[in-house]
């Protein structure tokens, strides 16, 4: 039983697509025909395909080819920890960059992700990579291309040294 792949992961995309189609149609229902035609037709197509998939999944469970649950979707706890860690680190990057600015946030992000993926023993590599990535990214995005990333006192000080 444990070797059978679980059916629930395969339901995620159809369920998300159905929910999104329902939301989409609800937002265009009152609009003129031309503005809602794509939503109605594509949403209808999603509903039909999702229904067909649900029937297929039910048949696969019924015939014993697949089981219920998430079996074979998640990998070992080590890899899952790293994956969730990367998502968390990216969310932190998103939240902290407007506060701490470009250079510091990016340095901490690269440093943290290298340590998380490579292990605590690679602290030297993590520092070197974080410094190199931050320096290159600062040079390209802030100094050369002048992309409007949030800048802190640290960034402005570095810019002052360079220019």
């Amino acid at each position: 039983m444990r070797d059978k792949p679980g059916i629930l992961p395969e339901l995620i995309i159809p369920v998300v697509a159905l929910a999104f189609a329902a939301y989409y149609v609800s937002t265009v229902w009152e609009l003129p025909f031309q503005a809602r035609v794509v939503g109605v037709f594509v949403g209808g197509g999603i509903a039909i395909l999702s229904a067909a998939l649900f029937v297929r999944f039910a048949y696969e469970v019924y015939t014993g080819r697949k089981g219920l649950g998430f079996n074979q979707f998640f990998s070992s706890p080590e890899f899952e920890f790293k994956r969730y860690g990367l998502i968390l680190a990216t969310v932190l990057l998103l939240l902290l960059m407007p506060v701490f600015g470009f250079a510091l946030t990016l340095f901490l992000y690269v440093f943290g992700t290298v340590l998380m993926l490579g292990g605590i023993g690679r602290i030297g590599v993590a520092v070197a990579m974080a410094a190199a990535v931050t320096a290159i990214a600062f040079f390209v995005f802030i100094w050369l291309v002048r992309v409007r990333f949030p800048l802190s006192v640290i960034d402005r000080t570095i810019l002052g040294w360079i220019t």
Partner: peptide, 15 residues
Amino acid sequence: PAFFLAPLILSFTLL
């Protein structure tokens, strides 16, 4: 290796 490539890809593509 992934521990080298993943942070590089993530940081530059997110930026």
